[in-house]
Amino acid sequence: MSDDALFEFLCRMGDNTLVLGHRVSEWCGHAPVLEEDIALANTALDLIGQTQMWLGLAGEIEGKGRSADDLAMRRDVWDFRNILLVEQPNGDFGQTMMRQFLFDLWHLEMLKALSGSSHDRVAAIAAKSVKEVQYHVERSGDTVIGLGDGTSESHRRMQAALDLLWPYVGEMFVPDHIDAQMSEAGIAPDPGELRATYDARLAEVMTEATLTIPDSGFAHKGGKSGMRHSEHLGHMLTQMQWLQRAYPDATW
């Protein structure tokens, strides 16, 4: 296992939490009710905190003196390694919560597996994060059920959100050469091994939410390899990185 591969893997973990954390923070002050606004802001905060740990470690492994902030704010689209799901726009509140649940469910299983990583620092970050993510998935799962099995309008919107986002689920489970090196070194699981647990829990929640999982295995790919991000990421980065682009090295 090379340090390059480990750096790549850590960027994937950190970019997922960074990009989703930023997306979720876009709701701050705009959510339908105050409690939801607070819940979303707290979720975003946890994700940004986790980002600092993942990208902080990535910078150390890379050994070029880049900090978590440098990695977050001074890279462009082609250097990001997040999955396509998390960069998709918020849409309405239901679509945001569906995206959150589809991610949280994977995130929880991934972090549980990483808690037993052969790499002590990866295991420590995962053990810290998993406690926070348990609350995220409880919240997003309850909301998907509440809205799916709600009014005819909320049901229609949640089914539309699931249909829209479903093609982005597969990417989480497709292994590549980085994953192969990670699992061989005992650092991370083969992502394919997480699928059975994910599918079982997903089916339970969607049944309770009276929603139908699309009958398609098609998966958009290219986010975690960085080969082909969707157009949305670049637009998001213009907002997220605005300050450092306009005033490089600005400090408070």
Binding site: E35, E36, I38, A39, N42, T43, L45, D46, E132, Y135, E138, R139
Partner: peptide, 13 residues
Amino acid sequence: RISQFGSTPCKAQ
């Protein structure tokens, strides 16, 4: 319970 999340990360409402 109103919400799993509250005014700080450590609290629920």
